[in-house]
Design a protein around this nucleic acid. Structure first.
Lengths: 239, 239, 239, 239
DNA sequence: CATGAATGAGAGTTCATTCAT
DNA sequence: TATGAATGAACTCTCATTCAT
């Protein structure tokens, strides 16, 4: 099994606002473009795409609205680019996993781990949290293509596992929905400032979703229950 | 364990458009109100709240826009009512489960089954799919209250299971996020016209999320693989 | 001079709400019509014509909106009728004054007294307080006719006074504007529940507007100043 | 007494339409803001606030409706600003008068003169002619504050006059209502295009309202009646 | 007659996008 | 290049008025 769970780059928005990118006129245009994207992604997640005004984005970057149109031809293109960056993050990881050795179950476990990590990064969150129907049909089709690829990868891992007996017999389609759903949902409740570290979430999800909640037979009667913690102030299942 | 998985009422929108409710002026106002809600819920899920116009709702019901304002004082009230109907569906089920006997694991299993069923009903889907930030702060607080209740219930079932040794030691909070996330996500991909029956989805999710994907030891090498089906035209992990 | 300042009927709205007029089905239609008018006049003065909904009127009378349309063909007709009742009140008084004997100054004094009284009655207040531009051109012309008549009467009294030397030489047009303006403005600040009795207002205005504020020569140095009172909580010049 | 009745700036709306203010994009924003206000004030007086559409204002300025929202956040703000400009005009004059020497009666006379002049300027007219109930409670409170100040000033002048024996004993409250009412009413009938010059109106009102209409004793029996003029086409007492 | 229901015709406001400088 | 200003196209909500019962 892949033991080395590599570190995911921390969510840049949290660590460093991108408002400096436009401070200097002679800055790399690509840097500015990314600054716009990071800011937009942040706002899209915070207020929703529809309620995020071009002005909001511009204001955060201390530039004017029309300046945005130097880098993106319209609002939707910003949205689409967020999707692209997010899906690229995911695909990257999946390719690595697919290239590695291991049972199907191990690959699923790795998938969950890596995917969960991406779901804590703004661009990754955008992929699953934002509403596709804000995209034009053409752009939507593109995004759906990316998502389908992810889905196919997961299903293939599951199928591998069924074939190599590491995964119990089941409908791989449903198993994929269930597994991916749990991980996707992270993007709905994860908060960068929250108490849970991305890696911790990822590791726990990886185990739970592969080995289940049910206790194995013959567990010792007395357990330390060490993992139970006082429940912090956290909103619930959804937000 | 609760074996009798009761049937969920079929999604009325699918079976019967509500356009007849306004055919007669002297029809029960409650019926008309519900017809508006069903139609609105349908459209909200299809196009998103923001892109659903009051006119869209009215057109589907063959009435005019201002007529809607006889039944709801504004668009947000329609949205809020969708949330209320959806959360009521869920709470109802949860109360039944909580009242029953069984191990914690069995209750979690029942929770997943019932909850998954609700996630295939439009009002239920609305609860998890629509964006809370379209609600006013007051309404949002109300909805969050409902959601928190659901979350608490699930966590308590998990805790029960940990205490009675039916569930492996884990952080109940994370386990709840994982389990509920998988089920919540159903509302993102489920399509009433799709090939999967709600009960089938619910049953499979109930088993997978409690017992995991991992094969138990000593499984026979040859399996019939009977459940694998040709994959129909279905979009992927998310939509 | 006309000493007998007859009592003006008290503002009916204050003394008795007209909500009873529709209690009995077999009531005089004229009574109901008047009840509508009184209620409407009250609301028009309170909230303005534009912000007074037909529903507001109906609600106060405990009837339904369409019922109003049995008595008036539209909202404007109600408004126009308010004007008519109000101007009728005024004309009535003016005719009496014109028929009486006395100097021009005395007639002006009587005019002010009577007119001021009318300005404390809702229908009278409507005439001067409501905005003519809410009327159709035709109705506006009618109302302007009434007002012109009032104006002509006042100017003629002033002219009489100038001719008989009871009034100082002046432009009767300007004098009429000044005198009538002071009285008209009563409708802007008078409140039935207020501390000032209509007759008191009328009497003081009658004297001030004819004899002015200036002290006559050779006033005794010491005066009781009896009329100065503690200034109650009253809004100001305008409201 | 203050003899120098200073000239009031002529109503700019009459002399110069403000449609040029938006001819150049790079024009002073303050100028444009004022152009909007002048235009709006004009229309508010002409058609009433409620019947004046944002489009009407925009059309007159040869701009589009949303352009207005660059300068004012909503319609009410335009209205409120009209009130503010108008009350500022008044307060300015009152402060000057209060600072000067003279008997109470002289101050009242000056008050009438100055106030009457303001009542012929659109912003001034707005203050007394427009309906306060079109303002939000907060804005209304502000405006009432301004009006109360004016009222207090007038009452204090009257009281001064009573104290220094230049004004006959009377209830200063009623005297203020009467005096201010006459002047306020000017805003109801004054028309910039009309035959009466503001200063002429102001001067006559100042005399009539302080010295009354009544002829002083021992006036000669024959008067030239020189001031009587042919009555032009003017509407009556009110409009 | 009286009423609950329905509507047509707006009005204000918003916002992505584009001029003009 | 970058920006303040301007706009077109909507969309929600309102309300006098009228059906249909």
């Amino acid at each position: 099994m892949m033991r080395a769970f590599p570190q995911m780059e921390k969510n840049a928005t949290v660590m460093q606002p991108h408002r400096q990118a436009f401070a200097n006129r002679r800055r790399d245009p690509a840097t500015k473009r990314e600054a716009i994207l990071q800011t937009a992604a942040h706002l899209f997640l915070e207020k929703g795409y529809g309620r995020t005004l071009m002005n909001d984005v511009a204001d955060r970057l201390n530039i004017t609205k029309p300046a945005l149109y130097h880098y993106f031809s319209n609002k939707e293109e910003i949205l689409l680019e967020c999707y692209r960056w997010g899906t690229a993050l995911i695909e990257d990881k999946l390719n690595q996993i697919a290239a590695q050795k291991g049972t199907g179950l191990e690959k699923v476990e790795a998938f969950v781990y890596e995917y969960a990590n991406v779901m804590t990064v703004n661009f990754g969150r955008c992929v699953m949290r934002l509403d596709e129907s804000d995209l034009s049909p053409k752009a939507r089709a593109e995004v759906r293509g990316y998502k389908r690829k992810i889905d196919r990868r997961l299903r293939s891992f599951i199928q591998e596992g069924i074939d190599d007996d590491s995964i119990t017999r089941c409908d791989p389609r449903m198993a994929a929905f269930s597994t991916a759903g749990a991980v996707n949902w992270i993007c709905m409740w994860y908060k960068p400032e929250g108490p849970l570290a991305p890696e911790e979430i990822a590791a726990q999800f990886a185990r739970m979703l592969t080995h289940g909640l049910a206790a194995r037979r013959k567990r010792r009667a007395t357990q330390p229950h060490g993992s139970r913690k006082v429940q912090q102030q956290m909103s619930g299942v959804t937000s």
